[in-house]
């Protein structure tokens, strides 16, 4: 089980801020493929992965990063602080 959290328009499109996912995905890209295959709302959220950023246990990571040992995966748009 892995915790998956969503922010901003990803949270709105998927319709929830956090969920636990039972997965054997080896990388972030594998997890995105699994989620996208689930329901259209996930496919809509991940339609353009160029505008999606990922953090693994609160550190920025790429889509090719391994999920081994990771407890929390976060998906969000490019950040707009300041």
């Amino acid at each position: 089980m892995i915790d998956v959290v969503y922010f901003a328009w990803l949270r709105e499109r998927i319709g929830l801020p956090r969920e636990q996912v039972e997965t054997r995905a080896e990388t972030v890209a594998d997890l995105v493929a699994e989620l996208t295959a689930r329901e259209p709302r996930y496919a809509a959220a991940f339609a353009d992965t160029a505008s999606v950023r990922v953090a693994l246990d609160q550190s920025l990571a790429g889509f090719d990063a391994p999920l081994s040992g990771v407890r929390e995966v976060a998906f969000f748009p490019p950040m707009t602080g300041g």
């Binding site: 748009p77 950040m79 707009t80 300041g82």
Partner: peptide
């Protein structure tokens, strides 16, 4: 760095009710 690497997201709510996520 705060602008592009701190995990904040801004949404503008216009007076007519339109909601827009601010894009980086």
């Amino acid at each position: 760095y705060l602008k592009s690497r701190a995990p904040f997201w801004k949404k503008e709510i216009a007076r007519d009710g339109t909601e827009t996520w601010v894009a980086a």
